[in-house]
Design a binder for these strands. Structure first.
Ligand SMILES: [Mn+2]
Ligand SMILES: [Mn+2]
Ligand SMILES: [Zn+2]
Ligand SMILES: [Zn+2]
Lengths: 126, 126
DNA sequence: CTTATATTTGCAACTTAGTTGCATTAACTA
DNA sequence: TAGTTAATGCAACTAAGTTGCAAATATAAG
């Protein structure tokens, strides 16, 4: 079930994802917006934005959910599948605009895959 | 800090990983062994076995930690990096003996990567 | 502009994976 | 066999995420 009304919470949250390919964790958003929006609402709005194809989500190495803007998705067509990169130094997590081809697996039906890369981002690498 | 003494808990847990490439979640192991071994001990022994290079771990799509036997690792050399497959029907999670090459990322230093594939396993596929 | 209705929100209480401190027990060594 | 130290069990805790419900608010009709 997606978003029906353009509330303040929705606008504040959408704003956080403007002009960035960076993924934001729920923990981060609650820390940042917890005084303006209740954490339950934050979880609910994020989940609705994901249903609508506005955001996509994945789990970081710490098991915490992260959200990032979708580029080419809609409510009916969620096709935003790409690797994610998490920096061990600054913690920044980014979407990567690259294709990774998954090899065929005999006897198995592949439905979805996620690649998570750990390392040092462009700012933190030596 | 790895394992120093061969206790009953260690043997029971090691036994669960015999003769299988299947990964077992902490939740599964606690459900299965919770009457013989305290859950705290289960977590602690698993972590030590990982330090020793006997097991390796990763997070499933549900965010729950899973462990599986290492093939070629030791305390000093943890080189067991491979994709994992999680079945949406039966929940079974397996290590995949395939190589996936990660493309170079300019300006970034790649330290580690994990590929998690969701689908239907050989038994559950049509 | 006012009202009716359905959606959204905040709050408190809850669930669950995982961790910690500490006293007790058990494995190994001498 | 006794002493040392690692390992265990227990209870209490942490933290991410969820749920039920009453109060608030966006939206559309009148
Ligand atoms: Mn992304
Ligand atoms: Mn594996
Ligand atoms: Zn960085
Ligand atoms: Zn299966």
């Amino acid at each position: 079930m997606g978003i029906i009304r353009k509330t303040e919470s929705v606008e504040i949250l959408l704003n956080e994802f403007q002009d960035t390919e960076t993924a934001l964790s729920t923990v981060e958003l609650i820390k940042r917006l917890g005084k303006q929006i209740n954490k339950t609402t934050i979880y609910r709005v994020l989940s609705k934005l994901e249903d609508d194809g506005v955001l996509h989500s994945f789990l970081g190495f710490d098991g915490v959910k992260r959200f990032a803007r979708c580029k080419t998705c809609s409510k009916s067509n969620h096709s935003d599948v790409h690797p994610h990169f998490q920096c061990v130094s600054c913690g920044k997590t980014e979407c990567l605009d690259i294709e990774v081809n998954i090899p065929e697996l005999l006897n198995r039906e592949v439905m979805f895959s996620q690649l998570l890369i750990k390392g040092k981002c462009n700012l933190c690498a030596v």
